[in-house]
Design a protein around this nucleic acid. Structure first.
Length: 553
RNA sequence: UGGGCCGUCGCCAAGCGGUUAAGGCACCGGGUUUUGAUCCCGGCAUUCGGAAGUUCGAAUCUUCCCGGCCCAGCCA
């Protein structure tokens, strides 16, 4: 069997970079960067950007930096920075250099002084409210405020004193002097620096002023020699500002920004605000809750780096506002685990089956293939005795049409074992099924039964050998495709997104598996030993994804 | 209503003036199967948001129209 080989998909960014390389632009070099702000955990949308940036660099023998966009200390923390590094590494990417926008604060400051000297930037002492009023609206131009024509000397003096910490937060900003009547709001004298007397995760209290994203990003790109600055569509009308800053200044490089559509995934949310809300309002247990669309959440759920990269390959890169169906992601992990995951048997809701025509001390050892299509996966022994567990769902007193599992008076194949027939249902005083009494056909081990067809096959676990385990079943967190557009979560949260089953019985070998080991529980789906809670005493499995089920539909 | 974008099969997505308009997912058959899984075979856009136009020839060029997304943080 071969692993799914991701085919190289053409997209407009790849075409563009290829054309640049062929034309000898940037000396044929390709340098990209992944620039997260350390103010939250990475999610599957970031994975798209990571795969694109690292992928393009690797495809064209270039480099990709990891750069923390740490220009707003009020929202950033070291915890997030650590988690981001771990997630990028886990996804399988190695950055060329680890950089921070804050590495460039001194250069950025010098560049700002240069803009002031050129008369292209000025200190505005209006309040935030006044600035907003003066900026105009989408259809009306902005109007010049009283500080727009300050002299170079005064601006320089004020800006230096801003840096020296002489002024309180909010009293002054440095603005670029561009075009107050531009249809593009970003060009109406955008703010370049604001005063924030806040401790920064890397520079501490060295700076009372911090540069804004638009001013910082283009210069950071230029300083690092980035050739292709890839970002999402909402930055499209920031590009004129990105270019304006670089045009005014003499910088080491001439990066070019290209925008692509951010990922939208059905039945989940991908905005930082919404993700934080899920954690803070306790709709999930943590950032790495297996229901979270964070990288760390998918990891705990049992997704692999390969499957996430494969997913990013499958969805493509365009400028379309695309909504990706969850099934695309699910198929990425199914396709990998179908090939790689060893098969095991686990019973989630046990019902005891007594094989009445077997002696009480009867035992037999059966050999099972770990993978039906791959002999190299090896075999294992499984015990069989008079009492076994089967799943509640695999017996029906009143079977629906086309039901092919066990029914009273009917036969079913125990996977890898004998065909059994159900003769009696034993119930307790409340009418609950306690035991099923069956007989077995001794001629059916490894052989088809004679004179009749038995279509159904069910999984089982030997009652003597079975080990108690906890299995966590997951379903989508939301009940609607676009929960982000709902006014509140309460109306769109799926109350059954997590179901913890504690009475499960699994094959003994499963208990000793290391955390983050993937298995297929036959007929049930793919499961992973929980990264944090799994142990020998209490094995814990998370359902990554079900098997495709054409019958359920 | 100012500015910037986007519209190819149910969901993605190739295509860049001459192709029978790739491919994946989903779906619908049929075969294999001791997982209702996997695997295999077949089907699935005379048509590219709409209308004009240019051209021997248009999804690809032009114009207009329709629909959708983004922008008025001292956030990124």
């Amino acid at each position: 069997m071969s692993k799914p080989e991701p085919v190289e998909v053409s997209n407009f960014i790849r075409n563009l970079i290829e054309a640049d390389v062929n034309a000898g632009k940037h000396d044929g070099q390709v340098v990209t960067r992944f620039p997260p702000e350390p103010n939250g955990y990475l999610h599957i949308g970031h994975a798209k950007s990571i795969c694109l940036n690292f992928g393009m660099a690797s495809r064209f023998n270039g480099r990709c930096n990891l750069r923390f966009d740490d220009t707003n200390p009020v929202r950033e923390s070291e915890e997030y920075a650590l988690a981001i590094k771990e997630d990028v590494s886990w996804l399988g990417f190695e950055w060329d250099e680890l950089r921070h926008a804050s590495d460039y604060f001194e250069q950025l400051y010098d560049y700002a002084c240069e803009l002031i000297r050129q008369g292209k930037a000025y200190v505005d002492s209006s309040s935030a409210e006044e600035l907003r009023a003066l900026r105009g609206t989408l259809t009306e131009p902005g109007t010049p405020g009283p500080y727009r024509e300050r002299s170079v000397e005064e601006n320089l003096d004020l800006f230096q004193r801003m840096r020296a910490g002489e002024f309180a937060d909010g009293t002054h900003v440095l603005r670029a002097k561009i075009d107050l009547s531009s249809g593009n709001m970003n060009l109406r004298d955008p703010t370049l620096y604001r005063i924030r007397k806040v401790t920064h995760i890397r520079t501490g209290d060295a700076w009372p002023i911090y540069p804004m994203y638009d001013y910082t990003h283009c210069l950071s790109d230029a300083i690092e020699g980035i050739t292709h600055s890839l970002c999402t569509l909402e930055f499209e009308d920031h590009r004129p500002l990105y270019n304006w800053v670089l045009e005014q200044l003499t910088t080491p490089g001439q990066p070019e920004q290209t925008e692509f559509a951010r990922l939208s995934l059905e039945y989940t949310v991908l905005s930082k605000r919404r993700l934080i809300q899920l954690v803070e309002e306790n709709h999930v247990h943590s950032w790495d809750d297996p229901r979270m669309p964070t990288i760390t959440g998918f990891r705990r759920r049992g997704y692999t780096p390969e499957s996430i990269r494969d997913f990013c390959e499958r969805i493509g890169v365009t400028k379309n506002d695309a909504w990706i169906e969850m099934v695309i992601l699910e198929n990425s992990i199914r396709d990998q685990l179908n090939v790689e995951a060893p098969r095991r048997m686990a019973v989630l809701e046990p019902v005891k089956v007594v094989i009445t025509d077997l002696d009480d001390d009867y035992t037999e050892t059966l050999s099972f293939a770990n993978h039906p299509q791959d002999e190299s996966a090896g075999r294992r022994d499984i015990g069989f005795s008079k009492e076994i567990w089967i799943d509640r769902d695999d017996f029906a007193e009143n079977p629906p049409p086309k039901y092919q599992r066990l029914v009273l008076g009917g036969e079913v194949r125990l996977r890898g074992c004998y065909v059994i027939k159900c003769n009696d249902i034993i119930k307790d005083a409340d009418g609950n099924i306690v035991e099923l009494h069956c007989t077995h056909d001794a001629q059916t081990l490894g052989k088809k039964p004679e004179g009749r067809k038995v279509k159904g096959v069910i999984h089982w676990v030997c009652a003597r050998q079975g080990v108690n385990a906890e299995v966590r079943m997951y379903e989508p967190l939301f009940t609607v495709p676009d929960p982000g557009s709902a006014e509140s979560f309460s109306s769109v949260i799926n109350p059954d997104s997590e179901k913890v089953m504690t009475r499960c019985v699994v094959e003994p070998s499963l208990a000793t598996a290391a955390p983050e080991t993937h298995f297929q529980f036959e007929r049930l789906g793919y499961f992973v030993t929980d990264r944090r809670d799994h142990n020998k005493e209490l094995p814990v499995f998370n359902r990554t994804v079900t098997l495709r089920d054409t019958w359920a539909k």
